[in-house]
Design a protein around this nucleic acid. Structure first.
Lengths: 251, 251
DNA sequence: GCTCTGCATTGATTTATATCAAGGGGTCAT
DNA sequence: ATGACCCCTTGATATAAATCAATGCAGAGC
């Protein structure tokens, strides 16, 4: 399942065994999933420093590994799987603010407490750094800081799009936007079929809808011939064009 | 109106006259409105470089100075006034993604196009940099990059809170959250009275509601004795406590 | 094999908020 | 002054989506 062939550094693999815990932080993967400046910024000589600081962690589906409001001790980089980030109200209402896939950084917050929770959607692998060490790394690798700024800026753009979706789009527009987003983030296989790792409940909490509305909307799209809903979590986009015009409210 | 007494660097004022345009970029203000690392990072010797790069601009109320989708040529720092940032759908539906006050940076986006529009709510003063120059400045002042990362992280937290608001809160909870946010951002005068620079329409577009719902909700809060709605844009918070429990859905 | 549990779908009904509509009180230019 | 315009408020009605409710399906454990 972990696709090492997609690693652009495959020619000179860099698997490092962690003495302390016996796990292998795969910096190749950590850096390359999104081709980025951080990769070229990290020289062979620096790898030792990084390997000291990082611990590879495996999180099973459904396990919450960042609790909103807890002290922000660690900083993460996702290497495989999907994480849901969320905020909740005291009465249980929950808003998923984003899904983080391979390459995403978690725990950027400046505050000393996590501002959100994080839970594994499927099996998730991630590199964990203590924030203390992370601070040191940023001092030594200024280009890493630039990489983080880039990442944060991208997330900010995504957040603004999501605010437009949550504040002003109809249920149909929301679901169409979501399917297209997922398709554009490489979760699409050859036949245009999408494998959604998350449940209807997660989608609902991400789109500010209820499970029932998500389900009904998908059924409606299927009836319209826009999509094909397969067993489990597979969805085929039959008319990307119509979904796009729907997502932007052009009808 | 511009409150120079709040400038923490008042002891050694640094007003620089721009030869080219005859305007005065006030770096003191630009840096200090939020006490930040960038200030200590900028030495006297660097000021010349900054003054070369920045142009102070005054934007009248209602003027749109960033158009969504246009080439992202400039980078801004607000020195006074309030800016609304927004995204719109083709049919005119509009979502205000945030209000930017003194100290905020605009135009962080990595892309070569602006991902959002920006319009002055009241009279706005800002420092404008070309992105090209900004890039050079970031190379020379790494601490400025750290400051931007901090800023972006804070905005990300705010965006997550806003997603929770837009996706899961009721109209009453949204308006209560908004009033408390505004109060916490220093827009509060001695008597707990809040001066909102924006119209009901702006508030509605920020909270994902209609003008009518915002108006009705404020009337309801007044009837409940939570607030007092004065003439124009002044609002007094009579029971911050009740507003807080309302904002978090505890009732 | 069975039951239990979680997830998804679909239908009936309710409700919060949008939409439509009217009127009041500023401000500005004529 | 007068009218035009904008913003706000309030009321009546419509509607999209939530809620309540029932059913089906699939995997896990016994």
């Amino acid at each position: 399942m972990p696709d090492t062939s997609s690693c652009q550094f495959e020619q000179r693999p860099r698997r490092l065994v962690m003495g302390a815990v016996g796990l292998q932080p795969d910096f190749c993967k950590m850096c390359n999933v999104r081709p980025s400046s951080v990769c070229s910024a990290i020289e062979d000589a620096d790898i030792a420093r990084l390997s000291e600081a990082a611990v590879e962690t495996i999180v099973p589906p459904g396990r919450c590994f960042i609790e909103e409001g807890e002290p922000a001790t660690d900083f993460f980089n996702v290497t495989s799987g999907t994480v849901k980030l969320f905020k909740a109200l005291p009465d249980g209402r929950r808003q998923i603010t984003g899904f983080a896939g391979p390459g995403h950084f978690l725990g950027l917050a400046v505050s000393d407490r996590y501002a959100f929770g994080a839970e594994a959607v499927d099996t998730v692998r991630l590199c964990r750094f203590s924030r203390e060490r992370m601070r040191g790394l940023l001092d030594d690798f200024p280009r890493m800081e630039r990489r983080l700024l880039e990442e944060a800026s991208n997330e900010l753009v995504a957040a603004q799009n999501q605010m437009l979706l949550l504040g002003r789009k109809t249920a149909r527009e929301r679901v169409a936007s979501f399917l297209l987003d997922q398709a554009n983030h490489g979760e699409l296989n050859a036949a245009g079929q999408l494998h959604l790792p998350m449940t209807r409940g997660d989608i609902a909490d991400y789109l500010g809808l209820t499970i029932e509305t998500v389900s009904r909307t998908l059924s409606w799209m299927r009836a319209q011939g826009m999509i094909d809903v397969g067993k489990g979590y597979a969805i085929t986009l039959l008319s990307q064009e119509r979904l796009e015009s729907l997502a932007e409210g052009e009808d």
